[in-house]
């Protein structure tokens, strides 16, 4: 090649084409996704919990998506009754779809684990519940206190598995409470909102409607 302008033009044309196809066109299409009536926006506390989730980098081990049951076992693993669709994520910014499952998928964790006690002791130290877990402990989200020092009405949890000396309990920080509120809000079990799914999403040749 001898002409620099030809080179630059070609290089720019490539990126303009790719951006149009994968960013601009989808933007106009996905932009029209209807908000499912069963999906509530995050409350202030849940949104704060989501920020805690993002800041700790939970996404590097946990995905938030159920793939098509036709060719994956995501549904059979109990991660959700159906594949997730674009409208399930309308309130998610930034998205936390994830590309790794060092831990299980979390898009329906609010259904699987509705208990505050479970979440708090698990976050404080996952091995208090499952000795084989490799999830990091998050002790900094909790105050470890003498059970005798608790004020009336204060919410506290005891931790099983010998992860705390006897007489000690954990009191969640505001961040921990928010994080658990967010986790409990993760539920995408309502039926797929019908109507204007963008261009009949169909993976593996089956359309959304054929799925249970």
């Amino acid at each position: 090649m001898t002409r620099i302008w030809l080179l630059i033009t070609g290089v720019l044309a490539i990126i303009v084409f790719a951006t149009s196809l994968l960013v601009v066109i989808p933007n106009t299409m996905i932009g029209q996704v209807r908000v499912p009536s069963q999906l509530a926006p995050y409350t202030g506390q849940q949104a704060r919990g989501r920020a805690v989730y993002v800041a700790q980098g939970c996404v590097y081990c946990h995905s938030q998506q159920v793939r098509d049951p036709v060719y994956t076992s995501d549904k059979d693993r109990g991660w959700g009754p159906r594949a997730t669709v674009p409208s399930d994520y309308v309130y998610d910014k930034p998205h936390q779809l994830g590309t790794m499952r060092t831990g299980p998928d979390l898009i329906n964790i609010g259904v699987r684990q509705p208990s505050d006690q479970w979440h708090h002791t698990h976050l404080f130290n996952p091995r208090s519940l499952m000795p084989w877990s490799i999830m990091p402990a998050f002790p900094y989200l909790y105050d470890v206190r003498d059970s005798s020092s608790l004020k009336p009405g204060e919410v506290f949890y005891s931790v099983a598995g010998g992860k705390l000396p006897t007489g000690k309990v954990i009191v969640p920080t505001a961040d921990a409470d928010a994080l658990v509120a967010y986790l409990k809000s993760l539920k995408r079990t309502y039926p797929v909102p019908t109507g204007n799914e963008p261009a009949a999403r169909s993976i593996g040749g089956r359309s959304e409607q054929t799925m249970p």
Binding site: F17, P26, I30, V85, T99, A199, I203
Partner: peptide, 19 residues
């Protein structure tokens, strides 16, 4: 240039994107 620039969605295979 032409093919690589269109590769990105293979990181989301099976994900909730238009097919």
């Amino acid at each position: 240039g032409f093919f690589y620039s269109l590769n990105g969605m293979h990181h989301l295979i099976g994900g909730p994107l238009p097919t």
